[in-house]
């Protein structure tokens, strides 16, 4: 049970860690100052949530590691994030589309985790869900603004959606780790979130005049560690550079 919970917490923590790092790559590069600040703030919230999830993961594992060690001293095959979040940022539109696709899932999943039978999971979910609700308000607004914007922004958002959509399904694929925790009332069944998710994102896409792809084909392997894209390794080289160059460095 603890082994499954450890894996599940790694998944949650790695999602926010990898996405948080990706979003932070925009710092100093966003199209306007306000968006730059917004992206950096979003990244900060995600890294904060990572500290909570990976902190609990380390506690559950009980092997003397902490959140920093889990984040900075694992290599690609140790990561359990969804493939969606490790994809490169692309243009601003694709970054915000990825953010929206993730935020929409976060608010639904965290809402269920708030009712977890494990109070440690429930309290982190309650904290993170407030931040996720704030994030989705902005990412949904931006998807609508750019989707229903100029011909150029519309085309870019539609292209971003089509590029990212085949990575969405992984959020709803369950495995033995999920099954054990679902049985214990710790986490929701991933598949049970799909209907609410599709209804929510479908509503936003309709307002954004974007066409939601019909295919349910999904790339997968990130959350169980079987397969990551070639992009994660490059990202980790940059994110973990300091610990790789100076192992054990601290301040």
């Amino acid at each position: 049970m603890d082994k499954d919970l450890f894996q599940y917490l790694l998944r949650l923590g790695d999602n926010t860690l990898v996405l948080g790092h990706r979003v932070s790559e925009w710092c100093g590069h966003a199209p306007v100052l306000e968006e730059d600040i917004a992206l950096a703030n979003t990244a900060l919230d995600l890294i904060g949530q990572t500290q909570l999830w990976l902190g609990l993961a380390a506690e559950v594992e009980g092997a003397g590691r902490d959140a920093d060690k889990l984040a900075m001293l694992r290599d690609i095959w140790g990561f359990r994030n969804l493939l969606l979040v490790e994809l490169p940022n692309g243009d601003f539109g694709r970054t915000l589309m990825r953010q929206f696709l993730f935020d929409a899932w976060q608010v639904i999943n965290l809402g269920r985790l708030m009712k977890s039978s494990d109070p440690r999971v429930a309290e982190i979910a309650a904290k993170a869900s407030k931040e996720a609700a704030y994030h989705v308000e902005r990412s949904a607004d931006t998807v609508v603004g750019l989707g229903d914007g100029t011909a150029e922004s519309h085309a870019r958002m539609q292209a971003a959606l089509e590029y990212l959509w085949p990575y969405v399904g992984e959020m709803f694929v369950g495995d033995d780790v999920d099954a054990a925790l679902v049985a214990a009332g710790v986490v929701p069944d991933p598949a049970s979130l799909r209907e609410e998710y599709d209804a929510f994102v479908g509503r936003i896409f309709a307002t954004a005049t974007l066409e939601m792809p019909e295919s349910r084909f999904t790339h997968k392997g990130g959350k169980n560690g079987a397969f990551h894209t070639e992009h994660l390794g490059h990202m980790l080289c940059s994110m973990q550079w300091l610990q790789r160059a100076y192992p054990g460095a601290s301040w």
Binding site: E34, I37, A38, N41, Y134, E137, R138
Partner: peptide
């Protein structure tokens, strides 16, 4: 409203 986010996590612009 200029932005939902501001100079610190607790503020908007």
């Amino acid at each position: 409203k200029v932005s939902q986010f501001g100079s610190t996590p607790c503020k908007a612009a």
